[in-house]
Design a protein around this nucleic acid. Structure first.
Lengths: 163, 163
DNA sequence: GGATATATGACAGGGATGTTGACGTAGAAG
DNA sequence: CTTCTACGTCAACATCCCTGTCATATATCC
């Protein structure tokens, strides 16, 4: 069947390559912050929590759970540690007082900043090397790979950044 | 300092967005195969091993360790299980008989194929939606994010694909 | 050929991160 | 007032990773 326009072989190689790209890219990008995390006795789970709390200050626990897609218990361990170490503050919700709205403390902001800088350096290099057109393509592909709900979340967070 | 060409605010938003893109994209792409893995009682570690063995048949254990960047012991557990279940075969090296060269069995090929298809469907959609220019950009950015050694590995694997 | 290095396997023990399930409390909502 | 929701917590366990150590077979160097 040589008359099929989209050859299976090409697709196969594309997918294999994409698996590699995502594996190595994700590994090395997230790994950039590991030095600091290890030094502080924290893990990537802590970093993820810090990131999303820093990104959306005042978000309730339930929303963080939905974003991370882990169970309440998994988050509780990480979160209680971050609160105990004064990286994260919980304040009671105003409209719904059952909620604990999460935000970074000054301490947490400083740590998140340190972690951020490591990843920024790697990313800034990559973006500069690849060029703005490639960056747009990168965005488009990553957005198309993820679930709709994740895309919506990113768009919501971007709107908040503009304020 | 409004005369700085590259404004920090733009960079910050870019990096935050990239963190999100990589987190959600990686999560949902790898998650695509989870249904099958869970059903078989396997984990993502098994999938990663299957992927790289399938990609480079006949690779020695040491090379797989270098690619995955985990310890021998972590791999041993995964690998011995894959061998026990007849997904992976080990054959003694020809030039160096200390080596155990790894390759997928027929069984392993079939499983890897099943896992592959899940990710292929998601990726094919994403690539089609984003367009070929975006895909090139995606490649360029991901390659620039990762370590040199990872880039080299991918290029080596691509050369093998052409055979 | 003997010393040394390498590739792999295996065991002990531990830590981070995730899971399910059950229970309790405060507050919202009907 | 009853029911639902948001959250915290505890027990028990699975997965995947780690360090450190020892053993074995084979290569390689002198």
């Amino acid at each position: 069947m040589p008359d099929i326009p989209e050859t299976p072989n090409r697709t196969i190689a594309d997918v294999r390559e994409a698996q590699d790209l995502l594996f190595f890219g994700y590994r090395d990008f997230t790994g950039a912050a590991d030095v600091i995390l290890t030094e502080l006795g924290l893990g990537r789970a802590h970093h993820r929590a810090l990131h999303f709390i820093g990104r959306t200050p005042g978000l309730p626990v339930s929303e963080l759970l939905a974003v991370l897609r882990i169970t309440k218990q998994s988050l509780a361990r990480v979160l209680s540690e971050l609160v105990a170490r004064d990286y994260v503050a919980q304040v009671q919700g105003h409209t719904d007082r059952r909620q604990r709205l999460l935000r970074l403390t000054a301490n947490g902001l400083a740590l998140e900043r340190r972690l951020f800088v490591r990843q920024r350096d790697r990313l800034a290099n990559a973006y500069a090397q690849a060029g703005p057109v490639a960056v747009d393509g990168f965005r488009a592909v990553m957005r198309a790979i993820m679930d709709d709900s994740a895309r919506d979340y990113i768009d919501g967070a971007a709107r908040q950044d503009e304020r």
